Simulated assay, not measured.
Amino acid sequence: MSVDRGAGDDDRDLEAELASAAAGNSGIPFDAICTGCRRVRVKRAKPEEVGQHPQIDPAQLEASDCSSFKHVCHHCQKATFWNPLAVLSGLLESDRGDGDE
């Protein structure tokens, strides 16, 4: 099941996190936790980076079915592994431009 909200912190601006260069340039938006510092942030990962078929429908994707992926953690100041907590389907739709008609 994908979700629209981040896992945990209700006062986060998930759209701003997605727009940040720290989230990455392409891929499915995940709420993910750094295995080093345990920070939760929006990160993008391509389906194949999380052990999924490249043509998978992200809206049908479960975070629990995804493997950890490597991404930069600006807090740790290095590339670390991130564990997906949730697929952010609301951000996926807004990223495509859906819903603002």
Rank of each mutant, 00 (worst) to 15 (best):
C66I: 03
P29D: 06
K78E: 05
H74S: 08
D11C: 03
E62T: 08
D13L: 12
C73M: 03
D95M: 13
L91I: 09
S94N: 12
A45I: 10
K43S: 02
N83W: 04
G27N: 06
E62Y: 15
C34T: 04
L85T: 02
A79H: 03
G27I: 02
F30A: 02
K46W: 00
Q77F: 01
H71C: 01
A19V: 00
S89I: 06
E15R: 14
H75P: 00
G27D: 03
V40H: 13
L61M: 15
P58H: 01
D31M: 14
P58I: 00
H74Y: 14
E93K: 15
K46H: 09
A86D: 10
H74M: 04
P47S: 03
R38G: 00
F69V: 03
A22E: 15
P29I: 00
K78F: 00
V50D: 12
A21K: 14
L92R: 13
G51W: 01
D13C: 13
D9G: 03
D65A: 09
R44M: 12
L92T: 07
R41L: 12
Q52Y: 01
D13Y: 13
S68Q: 10
C66P: 05
D95C: 08
E93M: 10
H53N: 11
D10Q: 09
C34E: 00
I33G: 01
H74L: 06
L61A: 09
F81M: 08
C37M: 04
S68A: 03
D57T: 08
I33P: 01
S68W: 07
I33K: 15
C34K: 10
V87Y: 10
K78L: 02
R41T: 05
A86M: 09
R38K: 11
K46G: 07
D65K: 09
R39W: 02
L14R: 11
G36Q: 14
H71P: 01
A63C: 08
E49L: 07
D31F: 09
V50Q: 12
H74E: 11
S67V: 14
L91N: 06
H71Y: 01
P47D: 02
I56Q: 09
E62H: 15
F69R: 08
A79Q: 08
D57E: 12
V50K: 11
F30Q: 05
A21C: 04
P84S: 06
D31R: 13
E93L: 13
L88H: 12
K70T: 02
H74N: 12
V50P: 14
D31H: 14
T35V: 12
A22M: 14
A59N: 07
G24C: 07
R41A: 09
E49Y: 07
L14W: 14
A79N: 04
F81N: 11
R44I: 00
A79S: 04
S94H: 10
Q60F: 04
K46I: 00
D57W: 02
R38D: 01
K46A: 11
R39I: 11
V42R: 13
F30K: 05
V40R: 15
T35L: 15
A63K: 07
G36A: 08
R12T: 02
C34L: 02
G90T: 06
A21Q: 12
V40C: 06
S64R: 15
G27R: 06
A23V: 13
